[in-house]
Every structure is written in C-alpha cells, then in structure tokens.
Nucleic acid binder design. Sequence first.
DNA 1: GTAATCTATGTCAGTTGATGACATCTGACA
DNA 2: TGTCAGATGTCATCAACTGACATAGATTAC
Lengths: 212, 212
Amino acid sequence: MTQTDRKVTVGLRERKKEKTRLAILDAAIDLFLEQGYDSTTVDQIAGAVEISPRTFFRYFTSKDHLALWFHDHGEEIMLETLRDRPLDEPPFTSLTHALRAVLRDMQDSTAEDAARFLKLRRLLDENPHLFGLSVARGAATERRLAEEVAARRGVDVTTDQRTHLIVAFAMATMRVGFECPRPDMTAVQNIARQLDEAIDLAQNAFRPDWDT
Amino acid sequence: MTQTDRKVTVGLRERKKEKTRLAILDAAIDLFLEQGYDSTTVDQIAGAVEISPRTFFRYFTSKDHLALWFHDHGEEIMLETLRDRPLDEPPFTSLTHALRAVLRDMQDSTAEDAARFLKLRRLLDENPHLFGLSVARGAATERRLAEEVAARRGVDVTTDQRTHLIVAFAMATMRVGFECPRPDMTAVQNIARQLDEAIDLAQNAFRPDWDT
DNA sequence: GTAATCTATGTCAGTTGATGACATCTGACA
DNA sequence: TGTCAGATGTCATCAACTGACATAGATTAC
C-alpha cells in the first residue's frame, strides 16, 4: 500500500489532509480491533482524532469505507498493470500478473502501510459483515476489469460471457489466495506464498488457450 | 422459488404469518421498483401492508434482507443437491448440478414466485449497493459449500486451497450465468439459456480431472 | 503585504434504519 | 371457556448518515 508517496510537491493543505486521513484510519483500526467494529461509533473515532463527526464523513463516505480503504488502491494497480500487459498475452495470464502486482506493491510499501493492511485484513476475517463488503467491493473491481479485458479482446462486454468468466475466475483466485484460513497468516510473506500457490493451482486447472 | 408450498398442514397462525411475509415482500418490491430502493422507507413499506414498522423488522431482519430473500432458498437447494450427488463424482460437476437445481426450482415455482424473483433480480442489477450485498451473500454460501465439498473430498477445509478454488469457480460461473447484461433478460427461459451457456463454457475451460 | 478567495472544518438540525422493553391482543389447546 | 404462548403495537433510544450555513485558516492575485 504505497499511498503516502503519491503527492510530491503539494501545499500544506494537501499534506495536512493526508495526515488527517491516516490519523482517522489508524485510530479507527485500533478502536475496531480493541472493542469490535460494530460497537465502535463514528463519534468515538472522531473523538480519538479530535475532529467533528461531520468531518469524518468528509474523509470517508461511510464507516464501512474505512475497512475497504486499500481496495481502491489495489484496484488501481490491477487496472494499470492490466493495461501495461502485451495485447497478445492470454487474458487470464495478464490478470495473474495484475494480482501479483498488488502483492508486490504491498511488499514494497512502508511498514506502516503494511501493518494497516494486515490489521484491516484481520478485521475483515473476524467480521462477516465486513468480509461481505470486501467481496462486494471485489465485484465492483471485477466489472471494471471485465470492461478492460473485453476492450483488449475486442468483444462486447455486455454479451461476451467468456470475458466475464475469465475475470471472475481471476478474482476468485485472488480471493482464495488472500484468504486467512488460520490466524498465523500475519506476515506479508505468508500471504505471498499462499497467493502464489493459488495462482499455480488455477493456472494448472485450465486447458491451454481456454481464455482466448 | 417454491417457498410457498413448504407448509402443508399448519395452523392458522403460521399461514397468516406466511401471508404477511409475502405481503410485505410484494409491497416492498413494488415500492422499490416504483420509487427506488433508497428513497423507500421502512415506514412506507409498513404503511402499505398496514403493520407497524417494528413488525417489519420481525419478518425481515433488515431492509436489505428483503432484497436477498431468495438467496436463502437457493443456498438450501444447492447444499441439498450437493449432498445427493454420488461421492465419486468430480466436485465441480456436482456443483454444476447444484446450480442447475436452483434454476430448475425456479422454473417449477409458481408464477408469483417467479415474478418476485425476476423483479428482485432487476432491482439488484439497478442498485449497486444491493448487487454488492447479493455477491456478499453468495460468498457466505460459498463458505458452506466449501465445507461440504471438503468433507466429501476428505480434506481439511481450512488448508486445502483446491477445494476453495473449485467452489469459488463454481460460484463465479453461477454469477456470470445469472448476470443481467441487457434488460431483455426478463424471462426465466432466457436466464436458463444463459446459465447453460456459462456452465458449458466453464466445463470446457478446465483440464479433465483438474478438480480431484 | 494585504485583500480577495477558496476550502476544510465545525455546528446544528433532521432523516432513516435498527433494537430493546413493555403492554396488548389473538390464535391454540386443554 | 379460560389460560398460555406467540404475534403485534407503542414508545424510547441509538447510531449512521446528510444538508445548510457559518467560520477559520490556507492560497492566490494584486
């Protein structure tokens, strides 16, 4: 999650804003892990960061949005990676590269960002409601990826089922790879290994050229 | 959605309850389609059925729950079908039978139930929030299916990634098959054709014996 | 450097979804 | 018929948002 280094030469305003955003995020995550997601109110979070509750909603559209924070970034990376892949590459292969790019970004991120990610991930696993939202967010990403893949394949995204299957299978692989079967999955390294395994399994499952 | 014919010889109370449940559902669906999901309040729905808002929440745990009504039934059918399949059948094949069972149940249901389903489905497609919830509900089903499949395969559900991939791919196929690319998908027959296509595509995508 | 402007934030009031507590009414059943 | 359990209504309350407006602090123009 290398989100902190996007801005380079920006005004005081922007920097302060980003600082506040991260402060809210960190305070919220800690409160969530401490006393549970549901029993943490927006007022508490706002209080911890010393902002008004109204301001909270100017940074995050909802309480849920907090927990899905890194999804936005991940989606961006996947789309960018996908666009950079050669057009003649089989789409599923391109998508696996996109998956790995997300992982790589995580490994390259600052310790703080990685810690945030791991904490949020734990949260998602403990809370079915949040887990559901995460999956839902993944579905939104899937749509965007499908549009991109359809364009690359030169087919109509509204009718081509194969495109949807390709993307859906890729996202399914990602979900399985990122799953948290046991609480010992607290290191980025472990997640990386698991995702690799999942991708390998997936790639070996398909017939050659199934996705063209 | 053959949910109305479950009760056979039950008391007046039960029948009345079921009637109320369907009345709420129908009133809600119509209001949703008429004026949008978000701008329909629970008070309005309750008013339309002439019950107190508090009672509404005794029938449906939330407004969202309404829109996911048929998921419960679908999940039941999938699990039942899966359990009835021969143990030596490849798991993905068993799961495709489970998918088709859901579809068959829909085709066999009363006209009212089918209409409810189609309306709700349209609603899900128009409202990203609801669509997300639907996907999330699918993820919950996926978990239960994974447990069942793991048991049938004799593997540990917490560690066996292949099991998760198999189920995730099956659910992905289902989602693609049920998708509503164009608004002309207003007949059960059309959905059936599309799901068949998706299943065929999926089955041809895999190497033989990839799921054993 | 100062004035004009833009924007982040606070305050306040209001809507809506959801839940607990308690009273009441009605079908079930002896 | 009378008792009891379960269904419903009423009331109070909480928490997640949202719009409107005022203000303070950052940015820009001059």
